[in-house]
Structures are given as C-alpha cells and as structure tokens.
Design a protein around this nucleic acid. Structure first.
Lengths: 230, 230
DNA sequence: CGTACGGTTGAATTGGTTCAATCGGGGTGG
DNA sequence: CCACCCCGATTGAACCAATTCAACCGTACG
C-alpha cells in the first residue's frame, strides 16, 4: 500500500497538507511482519518511525519471567514508536496479526517542516489521553466494566480507522492476551466475557466481535469518547 | 520567582538556549493558588500554559459523585496543561499545596521557535512513559509493591527537581489522597503503609517521608528509573 | 492417532473492600 | 480554659472480587 492512500485515515487528520508532504518525503518503503514478530525491542532508540498500515500491534512491558502488561494497542493509522522521536527508550512492540508498516526516516523532525513536530505532539497527547483512560479503568472500575470500556474504546478507534462494519470488527486476541490488557487472569477474563455474552451485550466468536447493544455497553463502562478525538 | 532562575530544573533540560528564549518571550507573569483550588477545569482548552514553579498539583479524573482517580502529579518544573497545546480537552488539575505557576502564552508554538514543539513533544513522551509505568503497577503488582513504586518514582522526580535532601522529602498527601493514586481504599492504603513502616523501609510523619532503605524499596517495586530520563 | 493450544468449569484461597467504631490533635467558640 | 467538633489516622470483622490450581473439552495440525 502506498503512503498516499493512507492519509485517508481519520487518525492522521492531525497532518495538514504541508505536514503530509513532510511525511511523504520521509517515506522509506514498507515492511511486513508475521504475527508474534517483534517490531520494536525494548530499550532501543530506533532511527526510523513505523506507521501501521494494516494489522494490529501491541505495546507491552515485561516483568521478570513471563508477566506482561499491555500498555497500548497500535491500530492502522497509528505509530509504533513515537517515543523514538524523543530519543527515549522504547517498550516492546510486537505484531498481533500479520502486519504491514510504512517506514519513515526518523530524522524527519529536523527543521524544514516545523508543523510536523506539532502534529506529532498532538498524537502523543492523544496517546496520553488513552493511557489516562486506561488508568481510570484500573483504578475505579471492576473487571466487567473495564472490559466493557476496552471494547467501547477499540470499537471507536477502529471506527476512526474505517474498520468497523455494523458494530462488528476483528478482535485478533486470545483470552490470555485480553487478560494481559486487563491485568487479570485468563480464567477470570473468560468468566467476565461470558457475563457480557450472557447479558446479550456482545457476541464473540472466532476473533470476531459484535456489539449487540452499544448504548448499554457504553453506560456500563461509563464510556465517553471525547478523549479519542484527533 | 523569576522564570530565569527556573531553568535550572533538570526537568526543563529539554529546552535548549534557543527554546528558552521562546519560553521567556511567552512569559506572562506568575500566579498563586491555594491548596485545593482548581487550576484547570476538566473539559477546558485553556489559552495559556502553566508551569509549576513551586508546590504540587494533581491531575485526576472523576466518575459520578466522588470517585476520583489520580492520573498524575505535577511537580515543580512540570507543566499542568500540555494537553492544551494540542487543543485537547483537559482533565481536572488542582493544587495539593499552596502553589505558584509561571503563566505562558499558549500560542507560543506558532512558528518562530520551531524547536519548541519538539521540546514539548519530549515532555509529552516522558509523561507517557510515567503513565505506562503506572499502568504496569496497576496491572501486575500488588498494592504494597505499587505503593513502593510510587514512592521510588516521586523520590526520583523530586530529586530531579532538587527537592530531596538525604532521602527525605515532603509528601503533601493525606492517606485518602494516596489511596486515590493507588486505586485502593484509604483503609487498605493505611495498612499497606504500616507494612512498609514496620519493615523499616520508610518513615512517614507529618507529611514528611524518609526512605530508610532505598535499595530494598526499589527491589520490592522492581523500580528502574530509566523511564524518567529527560 | 497423539499432542498442543485456546476456551471452559469447579473449588479453595487471598488481596482488598466495606462498614463501623475508636483515637488523637488542632481549631473554634463560649 | 474547657467543651466540642472535625478531620486524618488506625483497628477489627465480615464480606466479595479476583486468583490459583487443577481438570476437562474441542479442534486444528503434524
């Protein structure tokens, strides 16, 4: 896929015509990853910037042996490694599905396109808002509500990326991976999921999720999409 | 306090000489708040940028009646409302102590000083890193470890601001406020705190905290200060 | 055919909550 | 100066959400 077609993504609306020129100039080709492959290794400061074009990635943090906490999903139209722009050490990022990225030259912030830094600042602030919303889920909500909130958020973000058809979208996660998001065990995640199904709020089969009653799900999660604006 | 003296803060090291000129030009005076006073009202998009010069502020999110989750502390040398730079709706920010801020003109990103946007991007990315570290605490650690991690982080950040003398610093929080950070009840926070005291890791009296055995506290929290680099 | 993995279920256990009461210090008004 | 009150810290006991350990099911795959 060419970078050009890609600017249609709502998540890239931060970039005006001039900034798009800057991005295009920094475009260095695209690259594919397999499911499970590492995209960014923790601790690195990569010289490039990778924009997800297709597929899902996760950012996560690992503690001693095996314990993982997901800290974000990276969906089509989002960047894997903004932190690299600040010469900051990265967290792990790996591919949840087979995935293609557009690779941009990491030095694109050097003068020339002054508006670019502002655009990236906006993206970074949006990511902050998402992180804060996750924090609120952890601190104030029970797992059932937390999961409901996550589903609402993914629904909204995927909708922005044009990947939702009739309240239905791909959720390429095992229950164990979902558990790493919620900070819960896979067993409990399973039970919570079944609760939502039994109450007729969602359907989930073969990694395809359908929201049956969005208003009730949003109410359960106290979801307010404002923080996802671009 | 003048803005000039203020650049000594390590947290402001992102700003090079040229950017400091830009900040100085945007300086519009300073302002004081009382403990408890609101600094930024949720939902606003303030036209100014406020840099904390002295005192502590909290950023928090509220759910229906009374439930609060703290999403960050804002310490001397840090900005209250970066989100405003991205024309993004703010969370609540209020003063935890009496507090003085330097007010900067919010339009300071307009061309002229192209490096400023990059500097703010770095600050935003550092805040992201802090948020991710908090997320890891929520997801993977028990409250005892979580609290230990919080103490280590505050110790480090306050040290960067030059506010730590011999492993001892002000912690201007009631236990109920601490609980709003940990996402726990005040009762449980009290018990966890007593555990740390009993084990000789910390002392805490009259809002003054002393770390008695930093290495053990860091080990308990699996604290790695790398994410706080500027 | 066997094995591995994702999902599901049950039962015991535990980290953290909830409710309720008590303690102590600081401020205020009489 | 004392009585009162309020707030933050502390304690106890019952309770609940989520974990842990363990087993079992179905299906895809070599």
């Amino acid at each position: 896929m060419r970078l050009q077609e890609f600017f249609a993504h709502q998540a890239l609306a931060v970039f005006g015509p001039e900034e798009r020129a800057g991005l295009s100039a920094a475009f260095r080709g695209s690259h594919s990853y397999q499911r499970g492959e590492t995209i960014v290794l923790a601790g690195e400061r990569p010289p490039t910037l990778q924009l997800v074009v297709d597929g899902w990635a996760v950012r996560f943090h690992m503690l001693e042996e095996g314990l993982r906490q997901t800290t974000d999903f990276i969906l089509p139209g989002e960047f894997c490694d903004l932190a690299g722009l600040g010469e900051r050490r990265m967290d792990h990022v790996s591919a949840l599905t087979s995935l293609t990225v557009a690779t941009l030259d990491g030095s694109l912030l050097s003068p020339g396109h002054p508006g670019l830094a502002r655009a990236f600042l906006r993206l970074a602030l949006r990511e902050q808002a998402i992180l804060r919303a996750w924090l609120v889920c952890f601190g104030l909500r029970e797992k059932r509500e937390h999961l409901a909130h996550l589903i609402c958020e993914l629904h909204h973000r995927l909708h922005q990326a044009g990947l939702v058809g009739d309240h239905e979208f791909d959720l390429p996660l095992t229950q164990a991976e979902l558990a790493e998001v919620l900070g819960a065990t896979a067993v409990h995640t399973n039970r919570v999921l079944q609760g939502l199904r039994k109450d007729g709020l969602i359907e989930l089969r073969d990694q395809r999720l359908r929201i049956l009653r969005l208003p009730e799900l949003q109410e359960l999660a106290e979801f307010d999409s404002g923080y996802l604006e671009v």
